[in-house]
Write a protein that binds this DNA or RNA. Structure first.
Lengths: 203, 203
DNA sequence: GAGCTTGAACTGACTGGTCAGTGCAAAAAG
DNA sequence: CTTTTTGCACTGACCAGTCAGTTCAAGCTC
């Protein structure tokens, strides 16, 4: 019962891995099921044995991926709390966690960005849920920080959360695509500085 | 020679307008040439009379669009300088210009984001140039600000430029898609606050 | 432990539809 | 009369999804 599903689980994993890179590179519509099957080392029929359709394969991939991200953001926030760090420290730790995630799963990130703001697509609602889960983690830390007086009560929590999310997302993708020679620490500290208002000189 | 091209210019414009919305919604591959022609109110043959291929149509669209953006960013920076504003004021004006642009051309923005970090696509190099032009405008203002002592010399100019770019881009798209009831001023001031380090309370 | 059974997993040739791009004669525009 | 647009039929490549058949592995029997 358990061992019998191992084989299947394994092919599904191989299909996810194959699909994520291909779709990130080429987009959903120009990636063919034959390509995915070939890259996964599996026959085309197997794809349809394991997933109802090309779209369903993609949706499950998105869901699986965002779970990894929210878990790691949440873990970063929690660990900071355990160590007794401030909420701003938690935001900083989340930036780091976001960067780590993007380093580990660059294709997944690319693909997510490419699809997120499209309307009229089959998986639109899947993406909305997925986005909301990630943003919610950031928002809750922001709210705690406001409550504890660490952040100004004037900040607009939802807008700030999405701006932070976007800042990390785009900076990280740009780093990977256009300046891969930079170290993760350089990127992290540039973003950290922006967050903590140490850009405008003075102080 | 000039007036003779007016008519042609007009159909090209109609084709751009039709293509930009369709491709933003559905992606390049799942948008058909027949659809583009129909929405533009033009025969399919006309598309091929005016553009060598579907891909070329798209590339010219990208080029045309980014010109609009860089021009408006540059204009915002220049006007600030003329009014004798600081370089940080110029960055703020550019954020505003970016938001205005995205409000005016949401489809173009969506489409740009969706394609920018993909590799292995036909128009990859077009996009690289296009991105570099936009980022360069931001970088030059940052550098001036560092030179004049307004910003800390420790900031990493290229990374900060792309983080700012991303911050505005993602916040604006999120605003349009998920919180359209917000006013542009609310969005602007949330981003402005982030830029000027007025997020972390104290001060 | 050799042989048999069963259901789950996998295979790949095939089908039906879609779509980029072509060709061309005739009309409209200027 | 030159440039541009139209309308429409056609081609050939490509591709999502199907299905009849094959392989695999775990259990069962003697």
């Amino acid at each position: 019962m358990d061992s019998s599903s191992t084989r299947r689980q394994n092919t599904r994993r191989k299909l996810f891995e194959a699909a994520v890179t291909l779709i990130a590179e080429q987009g959903f519509s120009s990636t063919t099921v034959d390509e995915i099957a070939e890259r996964a080392g599996v026959a085309k029929g197997t794809v349809y044995y394991n997933f109802a359709s090309k779209t369903v394969l993609f949706e499950e991939l998105l869901r699986h991926g965002i779970e990894l991200l929210t878990d790691s953001l949440q873990a970063a926030a929690d660990e900071t709390a355990e160590r007794g760090g401030s909420r701003v420290d938690a935001l900083d730790a989340m930036i780091r966690a976001g960067l780590d995630f993007i380093t580990r799963y660059p294709s997944l990130t690319q693909l997510y960005v490419a699809e997120l703001w499209r309307t009229n697509r089959a998986w639109q609602s899947t993406l909305m849920q997925v986005r909301q889960k990630a943003i919610a983690v950031i928002e809750s830390v922001l709210r705690e920080a406001v409550a504890s007086g660490e952040l100004s009560p004037e900040i607009d929590v939802p807008l700030t959360a999405s701006a932070l999310f976007g800042m990390v997302l785009v900076a990280a993708l740009d780093w990977q695509s256009f300046q891969p020679e930079r170290s993760i620490d350089e990127v992290h500290s540039a973003l950290s500085r922006l967050l903590q208002g140490r850009v405008s000189g003075s102080r």
